[in-house]
Design a protein around this nucleic acid. Structure first.
Lengths: 257, 257
DNA sequence: CGATAAGTTGAACTGGCTCAAGTCATGTGG
DNA sequence: CCACATGACTTGAGCCAGTTCAACTTATCG
């Protein structure tokens, strides 16, 4: 079940032991196995060392802990090391609107760059850990390392494309397509992280999934039931198995990749 | 292949004449009255001169002309000087999904940064003009001018926030709220450009508006009629007058700004 | 001036929502 | 470690906002 440790103060107290990157808070960017997904792509060894200097290895977070809050001053971006996180905004009526799901190797917090205030909040969906990169230091370092500047431009560009895909998904597709697309998206991201693309835990509640996809939680539940009946997926609470990925792609109306 | 071969070589051939910025293809960034909305914000005079060096003043475009096409190699970002543009993707079924509306002073094309290919297309909604900024030159210049790098980070951050707002709007609000929000958004952007916030031309067709907002064109039409009946707006085809902005904000459920 | 695209309005239909009742999972305090 | 409380999930039934289809009017432009 919980693969992440309860002990928290590993950071400086324990001697270096080669454990898997995402559970060991003291590992460096150069050794992190998420490096090829994360910020350091496109950097050479010496550049990674410089990046390492400004990265703060974060403490472990528990489910429900905030990484930052809507309206709070923007200070840093966050790279997920383990666990999963959601971002959301709270509407005028006090309803939570989920805007993103983040998995290890992905970067959060770029919503604060424009105005120096976070435009949404970020919380842990389960026990997890992260690296914190103070933005002013990242900016300064980027000005000295062109490939880091380029990498960060690209990272922000990715976020833009991702958000636009989400917009397209939500504004033009039926509920079933949205659910199928979300499952395929997680599958693909797991695959890149060398995890099973067909068996995973979906860390959000039905209500969160619904909010993210612009449908009600009941609709999400019904669609899971229906897809299960069709033998496309097997759903056991949050545990998801994709039994027929091609069928799922057909439902999601994805014809490529 | 470019669909826009018309008159192209204005850039260097005609003598400098002091015409209003957005119709004069040869004016420089320093003199452009859109400067305070556009890229140059946060740059000092000498930095603006350097930026000027890499900016290509674009030719005029007619309605329907493409700025770039989905899948095309990403070479440059575009700053709108006059007119208006939409961005869109074409779905597997061949349906056009509008993803953005761009007005003078706004920047287009950042969807190509991540992968070096444009993830969507951009076309002129009416006669218009633009500046083209080759991205590799912008990147190189940014590495030398920290304030330009910062400016561009912020600009991309704005795009991220804007897309997320759109996502929230489309996935959680009723059709009427979406239409009201779009009108208020245009109003606000006109205001920043020192144009009338209450009387403007909405350059999209009902179908484009509907696609952008995730509803059908009939629904858009009906909502316009309804809002008109309530004396909130006056709609004469594409000509829009906001008669009661407070009522509109109430409908859009915007309680702040 | 005629053709074609854009916009309006009506009527019937439906996917997803709301409300409701119940089951199941998780975790906390006794 | 169990019991019970609370939150998460499922399923059903009725309803409604927005869609679909259709007929018509109004703009636009070669």
């Amino acid at each position: 079940m919980k693969s992440t440790p309860k002990a928290v103060n590993l950071t400086k107290d324990i001697p270096y032991v080669a454990r898997s990157c995402h559970t060991n808070p003291s590992i460096s960017c150069g050794d992190c196995r998420l490096g090829e997904l994360c910020l350091p792509i496109a950097l050479d060894a010496s550049e990674i060392l410089q990046l390492d200097e400004i990265v703060k290895r974060g403490r472990a977070l528990n489910k429900g802990d905030f990484l930052y809050r809507e309206g709070e001053e923007f200070k840093a971006i966050f790279a997920i090391r383990s666990g999963s996180f959601k971002t959301f905004k709270t509407t005028h009526e006090g309803v939570e609107q989920v805007t993103g799901l983040f998995l290890p190797g992905e970067i959060m917090g770029m919503d604060g760059i424009a105005s120096n205030k976070h435009s949404g909040s970020a919380v842990a969906l389960e026990t997890g850990s992260f690296c914190e990169i103070p933005f002013h230091l990242l900016e300064a370092l980027s000005a000295h390392i062109p490939s880091l500047q380029g990498r960060f431009f690209r990272l922000m560009g990715q976020e833009i494309v991702k958000d636009q895909q989400m917009l397209t998904l939500v504004s033009s597709n039926a509920a079933e397509e949205r659910v199928a697309s979300l499952l395929l998206s997680i599958s693909k991201r797991n695959h890149r992280r060398k995890l099973s693309p067909s068996h995973f835990r979906l860390p959000m509640t039905r209500a969160e999934i619904g909010s993210y996809l612009g449908v009600t939680l009941e609709t999400v539940s019904r669609i899971f039931s229906r897809l299960q009946k069709q033998n496309v997926v097997k759903v056991d609470n949050k545990e998801i198995q994709l039994l027929d990925i091609d069928a799922l792609k057909l439902i999601a109306k994805v014809h490529n990749d």
